[in-house]
Amino acid sequence: NPSSGLAQQLKTYLTSGGSVVIFPDLDSDIKVYNSFLVALSLPQIQNLNKTASKVDQIDLQHPIFKTVFEEIPKNLDLPTVNRYYDFAENNASNKENIMSLPGGKLFFSKYGIGSGQVYLSATGLNANDGNFARHPVFVPLMYRLTLNSGLDDALYYNLGNDRALASKQLALGKNQTLKLTAKNFEIIPEVRQAGGKTLIYTADQIKLPGFYNLNLADSLIGVYSFNIGRTESDMHYLSKTELDELAEKSNLKIYDTDKDAVKLIAGSNKIGQTLWKLCLILSLIFIAAEILLIRFFNNPKKTI
């Protein structure tokens, strides 16, 4: 049975941003378990349900499963349970249902606690409780939980836009300071502890893109990448009235392809007619020039 001391230690760990997965022992004392769950701000157990059931809802768009399946099968096989806990649930804002039993009952859900998260299962891993531990969905679930349990570091930061760098919580001594360094660059940033993380403020001292090392004494704590922000172009358009005013000032004419289609076709035909006449005139001029050149400048020398 979980103790109150364990609950207190887990509470501290969760507040610091940790992740915990709870698979309950269905043979434990429910009262003791409820004291443990209440200490973690989790729903209490109502009773042990021994009616066999099957998971009927799985949130495949949840970050845990979002990249697991390349193609979602139409008849997805889901875990079955022989016995499970019914919880006294309320509409908690910190709850995310990952898998549910019929009627929306909790089967496997995520609860945000402090800066961390608790993943609570309604059934245990014992073979007598169901096939959850042996089901194909179990391994990717545990793998993704492990990946998501760490600090979600940003891939890069934008120069001039990001005010603070995030790091895992660092315990600094009285005379210890962090340094952010690069080639020909070194600053001592401002450090704050918040929400189980260490926030590092550079005060807009980083001006060049590149990689910057975060050091504590001689130890490398992390590497941060800074890029130049790439904002999208302004996609606002001029109205028809504004276009007409601009065209009038610039001596341009604006056509509406729907309303002025006939004019555009007629205009293109007119241009075509003008060009063929011009080509004919130029051809006649060049032919006349060639005749004149042959007539007056091509005089072969007479031999005696």
Rank of each mutant, 00 (worst) to 15 (best):
E89C: 15
S268G: 08
G18M: 06
I200W: 00
S53Y: 01
R144Y: 00
S225E: 08
A289V: 00
A171N: 03
L6V: 12
P2V: 09
N128F: 09
F65A: 06
A217W: 03
V262M: 12
R83Y: 14
Y84W: 08
P102L: 12
E232F: 14
K95V: 02
I265G: 06
D77T: 10
K183R: 15
D162I: 04
S233E: 09
T80Y: 00
L178R: 01
L292C: 01
T257M: 13
N215V: 03
L42P: 02
T146E: 09
P300G: 00
I45L: 03
I281F: 12
P189L: 01
A261H: 13
G124A: 02
T303M: 04
K197L: 06
K263E: 04
N128A: 02
G104D: 15
S19L: 11
G229E: 13
F87Y: 10
G116F: 12
T198S: 11
H62Y: 05
M99Y: 07
L220C: 02
A92K: 01
R134K: 09
S167I: 13
L264C: 08
G104V: 08
Y119L: 12
L284I: 09
E70F: 11
I22F: 12
N251K: 12
Q193M: 14
Q205M: 07
S41K: 05
S233P: 06
G195C: 04
K168W: 07
Q9V: 12
H135D: 14
K302P: 01
K301G: 00
T231I: 14
G130P: 05
L282D: 14
L252F: 05
S283M: 10
S225Q: 03
T12I: 04
I281K: 14
N128R: 14
K277L: 15
P73M: 03
E242H: 15
L165E: 06
D258W: 02
K95W: 02
S250A: 15
L275A: 13
N47H: 11
G222T: 07
Y13C: 05
K110P: 03
K253S: 03
N49R: 11
F185C: 03
L216Y: 09
G103E: 11
V38M: 09
L180R: 03
F108Q: 07
F185K: 03
P24I: 05
A289G: 05
Y85G: 03
D204C: 08
Y85L: 02
L26E: 08
E96A: 15
T202F: 00
G17P: 14
N47F: 14
D162A: 00
L106E: 11
N213E: 10
N1Q: 09
I281Y: 01
D244K: 06
A288P: 07
N213S: 06
F138A: 07
L170F: 02
D258Y: 09
E89S: 15
P79I: 10
T231E: 10
L120K: 01
L293C: 07
V223P: 06
K277A: 04
S100R: 06
L220W: 01
I294T: 08
T15L: 11
R83H: 12
N269F: 09
D129Y: 08
L42K: 10
N298F: 12
P140V: 04
